[in-house]
């Protein structure tokens, strides 16, 4: 075993990159679920974002446009889900699953001409002095803008939910949509907005995969990350801070276990391979020993006439 071949600075830096796709998707789904809607279509919206972002970035030559395109595509696709579940009152679980299948198929179709194409590279954010800081600078301040956008988004969502009136209304809709409706809040409209936000975030997460983390377009390239994001929201007890922690923990342990394998650590590889899932679940389950629970109206259909 030669652990000295692991460079902790590079390890921590790649942890931040590995965590970002999950972070985006999970934050989006958190808002959706806090509004009382269970959208199982995260995987489908992510992969659609991945292909849309890739196509836009390649065609315009601008990764920024790519990310915007991905967010729009994710939001558009989620509107299909919103229409089915909020207007036609279709079953949310079935519609979400259908959205995933649809997204996977649609993305494969759209991406046909883009296999093997190299996307424009996403520039690292120039943070000047900060990057020159010893150790810390080379871990924290060497990334592209999206890594920081993800973290800022988590803070913004926390602030929105905990400190703003709009956030309170969103939570009210998620906890008891009948009461919220009785108070005069437009439940369906608010849920449409939440679902669109969730779709946009999932799209960004997908585009981060296809534009930065891999970077290429391959059919089915999300390979289950959407599902991990969904699980993460539950294990994080619908709290943005814990979502960040969970995403970083998952990404971090994943990169760490690959590093340990490459360094030839004397831990059986099976345990290393399962460790990201195990450790993330254990930590978040222990943390959720307090009385946090799911939004009370989660997954229940709402119609004003009921």
């Amino acid at each position: 075993m030669d652990l000295s071949s692991i460079n902790p600075i590079l390890l921590l830096a790649s942890l931040m990159v590995a965590a970002t796709p999950v972070l985006f998707a999970a934050l989006g789904e958190l808002i959706v679920e806090r509004a009382g809607v269970l959208n199982l279509g995260v995987e489908g919206m992510m992969i659609t974002g991945a292909v849309a972002g890739f196509i836009v970035a390649v065609e315009t030559g601008s990764p920024t446009m790519g990310f915007i395109g991905a967010a729009v595509a994710g939001a558009l696709l989620s509107m299909l889900f919103a229409l089915l579940t909020q207007v036609f009152l279709a079953n949310q679980v079935a519609s979400g699953l259908a959205l995933t299948l649809f997204g996977l198929g649609l993305s494969a179709l759209l991406g046909q001409g883009y296999v093997g194409v190299k996307p424009p590279s996403t520039p690292k954010l120039d943070l000047g002095m900060l990057t020159d800081l010893p150790v810390i600078g080379r871990i924290l301040f060497v990334h592209d803008a999206m890594v920081y956008v993800g973290l800022l988004l988590a803070v913004a969502i926390w602030f929105f939910l905990a400190r703003t009136r709009a956030g309170l209304i969103l939570r009210a809709v998620g906890e008891n949509h009948d009461a919220a409706h009785a108070l005069g809040y437009k439940v369906v409209r608010i849920r449409f907005a939440a679902i669109a936000f969730g779709g946009a975030c999932a799209g960004l997460g997908g585009a981060y995969l296809s534009l930065v983390r891999v970077p290429q377009w391959t059919e089915g390239m999300t390979a289950g990350i959407g599902w991990i994001s969904l699980a993460l929201v539950v294990f994080a007890s619908w709290k943005p801070g814990r979502v960040v922690m969970g995403a970083y923990l998952f990404g971090g342990v994943n990169v760490l276990q690959l590093n340990l394998q490459a360094a030839g650590a004397a831990i059986p590889v099976e345990y290393l391979a399962m460790s990201p899932y195990l450790i993330t679940i254990i930590v978040l389950v222990i943390m959720s020993a307090d009385r946090s629970r799911a939004p009370a109206s989660l997954g229940r259909p709402f119609h004003a006439s009921h």
Binding site: S14, R213, N254, V255, N259, A262, A263
Partner: peptide, 23 residues
Amino acid sequence: IVWAYTWFDPAKEADAAKVLIEQ
């Protein structure tokens, strides 16, 4: 040698490649 425990997962395969390059 790094075992990915998957036949197809682009993100994980890319991570594995990056780790090997870093080492």
